[in-house]
Design a protein around this nucleic acid. Structure first.
Lengths: 216, 216
DNA sequence: AACGTAAACGGACTTTACCCCGCTTAGTAT
DNA sequence: ATACTAAGCGGGGTAAAGTCCGTTTACGTT
């Protein structure tokens, strides 16, 4: 009886040609995105540009949103790297509050830079992309909150709410137009800066001891 | 010179037949939704069920998401009524903190009850439904925050973040499955209760004086 | 009451996401 | 090497969203 190299449960690795095609499709998608915008990135067009069948595209990514999710995951790898092992305060080594603040600001920046992709990665009739960013974001926030000594708070829920406060403004509420406003007069800071400062303020408030929650 | 009954800028009221059809379509949509779920509510099917042309459906609602937005707006009217002139603490008459807490809990409940519609009202490639719920939610939160004396905070941004913290968990992150969990053992409260308590805790922390924000 | 016009209507047409299934091929066991 | 098989591939087919434009109709004007 030959022993399996990978424990059962892992659905066996992707075949070499499949992996190659995935990479090729992602590269092609990125090129089309850069060249002609998200609207032009249709499944047919992508398949044709890549010289592959449409069925292949769907097999690899499941849906149109899936492609954007894969692109986003890809972009996020570098970002995660910074968070997990980059220099403080984003990486390890700084106090948790500072890391939380830095993380939020970095993520806002990340989402802003990738907002077109991130928006299209939303599915609409599905909770949230499976392997995608958010779970990780939430986990990281959750972990930092755990180091914060907040008394009897429900940290899982708080992390969820903070993740939402971080992502939703850029994903759901702020129009692209608003985000592109290049500071009309002088005193008004770019909306992005405001959101970023807002995050800092929010975390500061939450982390500040205070009398603690009301109910038993 | 006859004077216009409505000031220019208001793009003239909807024609009578149009208004009638809108109502009829909404009613039909609701019936289909109740009878066969959101998936069965296609534009063609709706048009046929209502005995109208497909073009009419699109003219009235713009898109599929638009129908769900209209349904949601409709449902929200009653809710708004409670907020604007119902009994405290949801309605006027209670301290702002209490109203904020009550508002959040009421909205969570509202979103939970209407989650199928709310989810489908999201567009994906568009910031947020124009006349729909969220702006109002944000305005209300903003207004209550204004009565709270939070020092030099950016209340607009804070309101945005709180709106996100309130809506996004139900709209984006929690799976329908999670939301339907009917309390498996005994000690675990329904996820909904946790979110609701989490909101209370969040508001309490924010409203608690504390030393104030860090940066000038 | 007759008229003019902007709005509304209908439904064929186009586009696009997504499904299906017979054929091909990489990877493995003999 | 050869054979076996699960994974991958291709591209035609389906259904549903969204567009267009010629026709009809509400409603203000004369």
């Amino acid at each position: 009886m030959t022993e399996p190299l990978v424990s059962i449960g892992a659905p066996r690795a992707e075949r070499a040609d499949a992996a190659r095609n995935r990479q090729h499709l992602l590269a092609t998608a990125r090129a089309m995105l850069a060249g002609q915008g998200a609207a032009a990135l249709t499944m047919d067009a992508l398949a044709e540009q890549a010289g592959l069948g449409k069925g292949t595209v769907f097999r690899r990514f499941g849906s149109r949103a899936g492609i954007f999710q894969a692109l986003l995951d890809d972009d996020e790898r570098a970002f995660q790297e910074q968070v997990l092992s980059g220099p403080p305060p984003l990486g390890p080594g700084a106090p948790a509050v500072d890391r939380l603040i830095a993380y939020g600001q970095a993520r806002i920046d990340f989402l802003l830079r990738n907002r077109e992709i991130a928006r299209h990665a939303l599915d609409g009739s599905q909770p949230i992309p499976a392997g995608s960013s958010s779970p990780l974001s939430r986990l990281h926030i959750r972990s930092l909150l755990g180091q914060l000594d907040l008394g009897p708070a429900d940290l899982d829920v708080l992390a969820l709410q903070l993740t939402a406060a971080l992502d939703a403004p850029l994903l759901l509420y702020l129009s692209t137009e608003t985000l592109n406003t290049p500071a009309p007069g002088r005193p008004a800071p770019a909306p992005l800066d405001r959101v970023s400062r807002g995050w800092q303020d929010l975390i500061t408030r939450i982390a500040t001891p205070g009398p603690g929650p009301a109910r038993p």
